[in-house]
Each structure stands twice: as C-alpha cells, then as structure tokens.
Amino acid sequence: MGRATLRRLSEEGAKVLGLDLNESDLGESCAGYPDAESRAVDVRDDAAVHAMLEFECDSLVNAAGILRRHRLLEHPLDDWQTTIDVNMKAMFRLSREFARQRVEAEKTGVIVNVASVESFTAAADHVAYTVSKSGVAMLTKAFALELAEYGIRVVAIAPGVTETGMNIALRNDPDRADRLRAPIPMHRFAQPEEQAGVIAFLASDDASYVTGAVLPVDGGWLTA
C-alpha cells in the first residue's frame, strides 16, 4: 500500500519521501519516479523521525504495518510487542513529531493512517494485529480532535483484504484464498492502487472537511 501510495501521490504532482526498512524494495517503489526520495529506516527508530522532519512534509501517510499470526493461547510476547511497536508506537511517534513541527510553524497539514477492517471486527489468530488496528482508529480520532483547531486533519482508511506482501502465502493457497474471498460482497481482494486512490483523496483539498474519519475501503466487508 505504501508503494502504491508513493507512486499515486507522485503522479498527482507531490514531492514524496518514502521510508521503509528494505532498501531494495524502496528502490523498486521509486523506479520510474525520479523526483521521489527514499530513506531505508526502521519506522520505530529516531532516524525515521529525523528523515521526516528534514523533509518538512505537509502530509504524512502512516502505511507501515506488520501482521504476525499466532494461536491466541500460544502467542509469544515478543511478537505482541513488535506488532504494537511497529503498527502503533511508530505511528504515534511520527504523528507526534509531525504535529509538533506543523503547530510550531503555524502551518496546516494532513495525516493519513492505515487502519483496517479489524479496527471494527476480528479475525482468527490475529490478536496483536486487531489490537493494534483498533488502537490506530482511536489514535486517529484523538489526534484529529486535538489538531483540528490548528488546521491539521487526521484521517484513516480501513482496508479490507488487499493484495500485498502481508498475505502472499494465504493468496497462493487456492482453498484459503477462496474461503477468504467468499464473504466479501465484491468477491475479490483490493489492489493496492485502490487503497492509494482513497489515501490520495483524503490527503487532498477535496477532503478539506474530513477529519477523524476512519473510512472503510473493503469491498463491502463491513456491511455484513
């Protein structure tokens, strides 16, 4: 989703800085987009914050996330902690520093967070992910409430199942893929570009009255 967003926003004329753990994946993302910049960093680290602050962005898209599946009763604490740290704490730290930079400079801005349908529902063996995405939804609303008076909008998308690296193994198993696809009203998974399109809208002036919203992009998943 982050890759698709970097490309879509570049195509819309934005100057984009992409952050990711993996340098070669970043290179692929930026291929064909000569104006896009990139830095290989762990979003949990101060290096990510510094890279963002140096770039002086007016929009921050928090798309980095991980999913570690475990049977609940055997769920190890380290994967719980890592999921909280990557999916929530990193987002909190980047959002905090972005907000501080914009508020101190008396400038407006936008934060778009990637939440999930699991901000509202559950899925088997996903406890840390579900917990983190439910936290992201409230992080979005709380930051939105506080920052509205400073002209900073904070919104989220709640993607349904999207074809990314997070679920390659599952999608390559025809039985599991069919079972996952079946309850989706649109009977298909999303393409990352479909999430990027909504992120681009939410980051744009067309969404100037949208803040605190957590918008499902889920092929109808939450309707039933």
């Binding site: 699991e118 579900t130 983190s132 936290g135």
Partner: peptide, 24 residues
C-alpha cells in the same frame, strides 16, 4: 484534558476484547 495515548490504549483494549472473544 487531552489524552490521545490513553484513548489509543482504550481503543486497542476494545480490539483485544473482540479478538479474544473470537479466538476463545
């Protein structure tokens, strides 16, 4: 008073409720 981190933990705790209910 502003309490965005507290709110985040309480949103997450609701997610924990749902996830554990589902798995248990």
């Amino acid at each position: 008073p502003p309490q965005s981190v507290y709110a985040t933990t309480k949103g997450a705790l609701l997610g924990l409720t749902r996830a554990m209910a589902f798995d248990l």
